[in-house]
Amino acid sequence: MRERLGRPESRTVVVWAALTAVICGLFSAALATWGAWHTARPLPDATETTALVAEVLPGYEINEVDPGAALFTFYSQPLHARDLKSLLFLDGGEYQQGATVATVRTAPRAVQQEIIALAQRRLRETGWRTFPPHVEPEVTCRADGGCTPTGGPSNISLVARRDDTALNIQSLANPSIDGTHLTVAVYRANPPAVLPAGIAGGLVGAIAGWMVFAWASRRTRRPHPAANAVPLLYAITMLFWWAPVLLTASSMLRHHRDEPHPVWHPLWEWLGQPTLSLCFVVGADCALFALALATAPRRDADPLSTAATEFAH
């Protein structure tokens, strides 16, 4: 394998090739799943959302319905080309799954547990798959960064899924600025095309990553003029591509363990995208520059001097 990769003397070249194939496969799988997500049905409109709230919370009236602008939004609006600068410079976390949100008229917060109990019962009766309520206690934080519960009221969220639709009922202990105590967010679950698209895209990307690495590795072995520059650029690429993945994946895993999720966060968020998309762009620029250097002609020995040496022997 080392011989095929053009580095028979190296003991780590196979590891680097594997890391390249894996990261390329992950990025291409994320891109494929992003495309497959757009086969999902549009977000529920105001009429469908009103009917869902009436089904789940009978007897409660809706104040307002805010239809989602798109399946995925940037600051609650569809992503546009003018948003790319903001997306790159540490604002990418605002690119999130869209939802249609209804605010519901409620009694005072003393009946919070009654509302959640009613919603759980109605969800089970109407065929929804429910998850345990998630309680966020009121906390107070100190200057050193530590936070402790105050013993005061808590925010409670209840999530459920039925077919390709998911919802999040959130009961707020303290009202928001407009006085809202209860909201119902309705959004779409991942469509069936996401999984096969991710697998196919991942395989294609991994194979392509391995082949490109192998070509560049064979091409740039000494005495290539970029024999030193290409490995340096490659190391920078791996740093900027792998660091966000390792940091974000562990954080996302803790997040999914702590809170119930009827719909898991999409694959690209597990890779730190687009939150840390600037890292990806820097790594991609270094990779393209390295490949461009790899196309330079090799500085092999002069064939005439080689022939003379062979004749002397």
Rank of each mutant, 00 (worst) to 15 (best):
A193V: 07
P192V: 05
G151D: 01
R121M: 07
R82Q: 12
A307F: 03
Y187S: 10
T183N: 06
W128L: 01
N63R: 15
R122I: 08
W268R: 09
P223F: 04
L278C: 03
T140M: 09
N174Y: 15
C24L: 12
P303A: 08
L57C: 10
A18N: 08
S277P: 03
G272M: 07
A54T: 14
L118Q: 14
S86G: 15
Q113A: 15
V65C: 09
A110W: 11
L43R: 02
A226G: 11
Y187D: 03
A214N: 01
L26N: 11
A30F: 11
A243E: 05
Y75F: 14
I156G: 07
C279F: 15
L87K: 01
E94C: 04
L232W: 14
E64D: 14
L31E: 11
T103F: 09
I62E: 12
P303N: 00
R41G: 15
L267E: 00
E310C: 00
F27C: 13
E136K: 11
G25H: 12
Q273D: 05
D66S: 15
N174S: 15
G152Y: 00
K85F: 12
G151K: 08
A229N: 03
T150C: 09
D302N: 12
Y60W: 13
F131E: 10
V65N: 09
L182Q: 08
G68S: 02
T33H: 06
H313A: 14
N174L: 15
G127F: 00
